[in-house]
Design a protein around this nucleic acid. Structure first.
Lengths: 368, 368
DNA sequence: CTGAAAGCGCTTACAG
DNA sequence: CTGAAAGCGCTTACAG
């Protein structure tokens, strides 16, 4: 067996004298130099083994592996990043007040990143901040991210795209709706999903269907309306303008839309398609307050499959949006690219559309 | 005015030839060397200005500031971290399936971190993972975090505390319930909060009050029960054992508890205090399904002020837990410590208790 | 008040 | 198949 010498303590040079609360000296974290010394090779060889490069004799790599295990060596990510061209860091830029959306987004991205020892930096942004561009540029010059994931509505803001492209950082957009050729993207077919939901309502016999738009700055709002229109027209129906209500993807805007839709009296729609669940919740809250029965007097459907859909009563019929999987796919593209170091010019043509699931039928809509 | 020379392009040496998608060469990100050259000073002086150190002539620092602005220089965090003793990175370790909890946690931590140009690494952990200790140790040896925020139930696991202490990384626990002397901590008085909620129910005339425990591994479960007991006993009441139900902080466990509490028939409590909102939602779902009216036939209260509390009907009466502020405070302790580089031995004595707000009265509880 | 040198822990580019 | 040297962009410790 190869003789293994423990590394000298080096209390004098280099040692940073870390102490814990009780004044005990903590063991110094092993570095590549320690491993090289113990294994009896050069640091370059240790580096080769750690990075799984070819051209290392089995015998040599075994020696290194032993030293690594003995010293519990883990390469310092920051040093690696500074010296090399990879930071093993992916940034997640978002501006969205729905907790479950952010939660799923991060979960998906982190899940993929962990598979390749990447980490995720979650960076909320304020899209109304006049210094948004500066703030993004600062982030990217301060930390060399290997990639950025961009979500709506940030992903549709020119200023954001410009800032990122100026820094030359690869990025993937989730559910973008503008400048589609400009970057890699992952999405679902929002239009088709909304069409299917509308078809479902139509199949239930509804003809008087109201639609509550989402936030105009979110591309999904327009795509979903487009799908709604398509389904209506395919049935020879033209939606009534006074039933097409503006909304902002918020509970309150949904409630306000419901007030003008249901408050009047005689001339009511039999079904309301809210562009997302939050607004559908607002509609149901208004109905609840006014004693209007859902779904007996009016059917309500949403979009997203927000966890709240199972909290309210009746449970909300909706479309499942696979946010977790979209984020996973976005991270996957970025991590892959970092590994094969593919050409940025080609990378921007990456496009992925996740399969759609049919509407999730729960209790908030019924046949007329 | 001092003459300012633009830095040489240096396309030959050092330049990494980054190109964007259209083959254009991107501007190199300015480094401390560029700034020093433009300002006509040494890099050490630039470093002094960037770090706000004393002993720099106004005239000199002005020259540096001009160069910084001209070149849009931002110090490279990774290089800074490698050279210095600070990484400007705070880790957030959690294992909690409630999206709004994680969302608020991150929001609070990020809010504080941004004030001092820190970044947050969100690192979900699996408390049941047999490699948990290894996973944390690996994280801390790979990235030199300036501090770690620990949340329940991780913050009460010895193996987690040991792993972090062994690495000598300062950490703050949020709402810990065991080994209270072992680390810095921020919390609210869970026991007192639960006592106030119970007092509220008592004030409404309730005497037959059921309690649904939280997850036994979360310290808050026990503290809240303690407060409940205290209030009951202060009124000369002893809770009925068959109404003290186990729970796991989940919707399903709340629903199951409700089934055994309300399913029987004759012998029902008039009020149910669920140890968190999720379980209260489960209780209300069960009641809804069985046609039991809340609050007419049974009052229900929760704990947390989960956003869902405003989604269900009637809205849930609950205690507001300031997760956002707890995380802010935890990050604050860590960031402060990193700046004044205070003694770890003293740091562990830091303790902060956030003020309590009285129960938020909504519609789910009423007088008997 | 300012700077030259060494070093943080790695990778890259080059030799052999 | 392996290694010595240089360098990534900063800070630390030391001089002056």
């Amino acid at each position: 067996m190869t003789q293994i010498k423990a590394p000298p303590a080096r209390m004098s040079d280099g040692f940073k004298g870390r102490k814990d609360g009780d004044g005990e000296v903590l063991p110094r974290i092993a570095t590549i130099t320690d491993v090289a010394r113990v294994a009896g090779v050069s640091i370059k060889t240790v580096s080769r083994v750690m990075n799984g490069e070819k051209n290392v004799r089995k015998e040599t790599s075994d020696k290194v592996d032993n030293a690594v295990n003995l010293l519990k060596y883990r390469p310092n990510l920051l040093a690696r990043s500074l010296a090399g061209s990879r930071s093993f860091l992916i940034g997640l830029l978002h501006d969205n007040p729905v907790p479950s959306y952010i939660y799923d987004l991060q979960r998906g991205a982190i899940r993929r990143c962990r598979e390749s020892k990447y980490h995720v930096l979650s960076e909320p942004q304020d899209r109304l901040d006049p210094n948004l561009e500066r703030s993004i540029t600062d982030l990217l010059s301060t930390i060399r991210l290997d990639g950025v994931i961009l979500t709506p509505p940030l992903c549709d803001m020119n200023i954001v795209l410009q800032a990122i492209e100026a820094m030359g950082v690869p990025y993937v957009r989730i559910a973008p709706s503008r400048n589609l050729g400009q970057s890699a993207a992952v999405s679902i077919d929002d239009s088709e999903a909304a069409k299917q939901m509308t078809d479902y309502l139509l199949g239930l016999g509804h003809r008087d269907i109201a639609f509550i738009h989402g936030h105009p700055e979110h591309g999904a709002s327009h795509l979903r309306y487009e799908g709604f229109l398509k389904a209506m027209r395919a049935h020879g129906l033209e939606p009534r303008q006074e039933w097409m209500k503006p909304g902002l993807f918020t509970f309150d805007s949904g409630k306000a839309a419901a007030a003008s839709l249901l408050g009047g009296g005689s001339n009511r729609p039999t079904a309301i398609f809210a562009c997302n669940d939050e607004m559908a919740f607002g509609v149901m809250a208004f109905a609840q307050e006014k004693g209007i029965k859902v779904p007996d007097q009016v059917s309500v459907v949403g979009f997203d499959d927000n966890p709240g859909a199972l909290l309210i009563w009746p449970h909300l019929t909706t479309i499942h949006q696979p946010i977790d999987e979209l984020a996973y796919a976005a991270a996957d593209l970025l991590v892959q690219r970092a590994f094969d170091n593919s050409d940025p010019a080609e990378f921007k043509h990456q496009r992925l559309e996740l399969p759609l699931r049919p509407p999730i039928v729960r209790g908030s809509a019924k046949a007329v």
